[in-house]
Design a binder for these strands. Structure first.
Lengths: 253, 253
DNA sequence: AAGTGGTCTAGACCACCAT
DNA sequence: TGGTGGTCTAGACCACTTA
């Protein structure tokens, strides 16, 4: 048999299914398959890459584990889309002290263009003093203000994003990135600490100055761990908590 | 062919590899294979359960994803043990603001027997007013006190645990549970919030009263999500942060 | 009825480790 | 050298969805 595409591309390095995964990821990056649409069937993909179904499935298994694609028996394999459920399960970790989880309502307070700080530029992989968008949102749960979000975006990748367009989205912020800017947030890295409320934050959250707040510093990442957004959330944890459930749902059912 | 053990046990319900996983987990619970020792080879296990290697491997794949067993090519598959590395990777989420992670030193301040509160009994699945052990530890990083841990254990499962034995352990606390009491903590569920330091905690951490602290409420779980320990950690996040890295390392490489 | 993903099998070959 | 897990294959059959 002549060498297949996948075999020659692999050049003998590493497992074949990793190379297939790399090719699938590349096609996702290039938007060969857009969010929400079905990939070709496993049979077709296996033929395309010149591998067996088992090998193809092992590559897709990893993309499923990373929540980049979703399988639906009888229907097909789909590129994951950002929606309310995905937000609540994988990106919004705030729950009520009774365990109840609610979808937050958002009010945009600021929308500004500015220059990145040294730290921001470094964390976003931008040149020093590159332009960024700064957005401040107030998030409410069941009518009460609970979170102040400060978002930093690289202006170059969101060049025509305006305050109006941002506010007029009818879905999650990551859905907007995904559909309007071709930027697919696939995971995030977060660092948490405790701080005291400053006067301005206290006013927004309707709490006393120097009340304790949970600070969440998040970097949102797209394919191959490229950073696309910085976000600092200040959370009033009087009636809510941050939920970190590791293990079960993260890996296997 | 006559029906195999696994097939008859499954009674036609659900996938065969899930039933194999259940049988493997049962053997782990019953300590047929103790922590640190190798399971029988995949070939042997496949014969034992009357399934193919592929099916057996799929069952073990899930146990590996849940970090209950570890595979080592050429050597075998081993029951995971609790050690410093496992603690740092999967249970101790505090890192320096520079990203550096250090192993904490522990000083035991209290070791008491008491009755469970209503909430504790409920969270540990105990009868009301059941006996519990209350342990307070002061954790230091690079010589500085950073965390106060309050641990609650069901006394029944740790009946002969004394303060001396607890202090004299030469490894992690979960290692002690695993080796001395046959209790294998496999994952944890955590809720985080921000609080103000009380006078006693402030004194221990050498900070001012009313300084902000990160509060981590953890439930440690063993096989099949049975709760075995409650722990409340109060963390001075002046020089350290809580690191929540979801996705990559949790699921697939 | 046709097409999809989900499960299961049997076997080959490779990479790695202990002896 | 023999045993282990790691990869890859080819195919059968099942469960589910859509039309």
């Amino acid at each position: 048999m002549p060498p297949t595409i996948a075999q020659s591309a692999a050049q003998g390095h590493g497992p074949l299914y990793k190379e297939v995964k790399r090719l699938l990821t590349q096609s996702l990056i290039e938007r060969e398959w857009a969010p929400g649409v079905a990939l070709p069937s496993e049979t077709r993909l296996a033929k395309r890459y010149g591998v067996s179904i088992g090998t193809l499935r092992k590559a897709i298994d990893e993309l499923v584990a990373e929540r980049i694609v979703q399988r639906h028996q009888g229907r097909g394999t789909f590129v994951a889309t950002h929606n309310a459920n995905r937000l609540l399960f994988h990106f919004f970790h705030i729950v009520g002290r009774d365990g109840h989880q609610a979808f937050p309502t958002t009010q945009t307070l600021h929308f500004r263009c500015a220059k990145a700080t040294e730290d921001e530029a470094q964390r976003l992989g931008l040149a020093a003093h590159a332009k960024v968008l700064r957005i401040r949102n107030l998030l409410s749960l069941e009518g009460q203000p609970v979170i102040v979000d400060d978002i930093v975006l690289p202006q170059a990748r969101f060049s025509d994003l305006t305050a109006q367009r941002f506010k007029q989205r009818d879905n999650t912020i990551y859905h907007l990135y995904q559909t309007a800017y071709g930027i697919n947030v696939v995971r995030s890295s977060e660092r948490l600490s405790a701080v005291l409320a400053t006067a301005d934050i206290a006013a927004l959250l309707k709490i006393q100055q120097h009340a304790p707040l949970l600070a969440i510093n998040r970097t949102a990442l797209t394919y191959r761990d490229a950073p696309v957004e910085l976000r600092r959330s200040l959370v009033n944890t009087t009636a809510h908590e941050y939920h970190s459930n590791r293990g079960k749902e993260q890996s296997a059912g």
